[in-house]
Amino acid sequence: MQENGLFDRSLIQAHRRRAMAKFAPGTDFLLARAADDLEDRLATVERRFPVAVDLGGHTGLAAEAIARSGKADEIIRIEQDTAFLHGPFPAIVADDEALSLGPASVDLIVSLLSLQLTNDTPGALFQIRHALKPDGLFLGTMAGGGTLGELRESLLAAEAELTGGASPRVAPFADIRDVGGLLQRAGFALPVTDVESFTVRYDNMFALIADLRAMGMQNSLLGRSRRPVPRHFFLRAAEIYAERFSDPDGRIRATFSIIWMSGWAPHASQQQPLKPGSAKTSLAAALAETEKSKKAP
């Protein structure tokens, strides 16, 4: 059956299985960084969560971070494939685009670097909010705009130069303003987003591509070209990359951007915005009083 949307979801899982089978220490640095940040963010939340869910993390790093934070009594992992399920945590095999959680059934849901690969991200966020108990918390990350921008530009430039056309080779990533809108659309209360961008340096483009493969981050776009790619294409792309994005020492730069998002399932105890017209003092009066105080001797 043909999938709809941007991504070949079965191919994403195949890439991740292959990466896990060939895992080498350090190649999961993006998820490890996000998991460390997750632990720090949970440390600032002044409450405990009876039931927490690590959704689609495929490595267990998020579940381990929740456990280290000491903020959850029970941690459940949800993965699309049993190949990703290992370690001490109870687990459920389910699609993160079709959650098998009941309504208002869990207290905390965490998703690290997975939602940007869903074909129905608004629907996935709505299901997450629906599965949270009132005043339950969602914490998640997505790859943001700018991620692998140098690689995208180099591949497009090489293909346009050699063939006169271009096919999608790097997935599009979300803008932080769009992510905030998605949280509101899904019904989250008190939505917050922020972004962290950082640069990783490599000897050359092929070293970067090797790392992406080791993370299971190959091209999984449904619209990708199926034609075999000649070696001279990648050689030319590597030359363009080095010409445009290298430092004086010859090493190239690769940008990664991580968008953090949080939101709460609505609850009566949460801070509510003031109703229109409920202010005791008008803005005009406040400004007039400020001007008056400035002119006073």
Rank of each mutant, 00 (worst) to 15 (best):
K292N: 13
F173D: 09
L99T: 01
D120N: 04
G277Q: 01
A296Q: 08
R213C: 00
E97I: 00
A189S: 06
N119F: 10
A284L: 14
G102Y: 08
S69R: 13
G70D: 08
Q218N: 15
L212Y: 02
I75P: 04
V229F: 07
S257W: 03
R251P: 04
E79T: 03
N119Q: 02
E97K: 02
L125G: 01
D135E: 04
A52C: 09
Y241E: 14
A21W: 13
I12M: 13
L101P: 01
R33Q: 15
T255M: 07
H130E: 03
R33K: 09
D194H: 11
T193A: 14
A214R: 05
P230K: 05
K22C: 03
P273R: 05
A19V: 00
N4R: 02
A286E: 12
G149C: 08
S100P: 03
R18G: 12
D37E: 15
E46F: 05
L115I: 01
R152E: 15
D135W: 02
V51P: 09
T82M: 12
E159F: 03
L85D: 02
R251Y: 05
F49Q: 12
N4A: 13
F49L: 14
R231A: 15
T27G: 13
R41P: 06
E239T: 11
A104V: 07
A207N: 11
P297L: 11
P134L: 05
E64Y: 05
A67I: 04
V179S: 00
G263S: 04
K22R: 14
A265F: 04
A24D: 06
P172Q: 01
A63T: 02
W264S: 00
P122E: 00
N119S: 03
L139N: 09
D249Y: 10
V192F: 14
A186E: 00
A14F: 07
F84Y: 05
E150A: 06
F256V: 06
T147C: 09
P266S: 04
F234M: 14
H130R: 15
Y202W: 03
R244L: 13
R169H: 15
L137A: 09
L235C: 10
L99G: 01
A171Y: 10
D28Q: 15
V179C: 00
I176P: 10
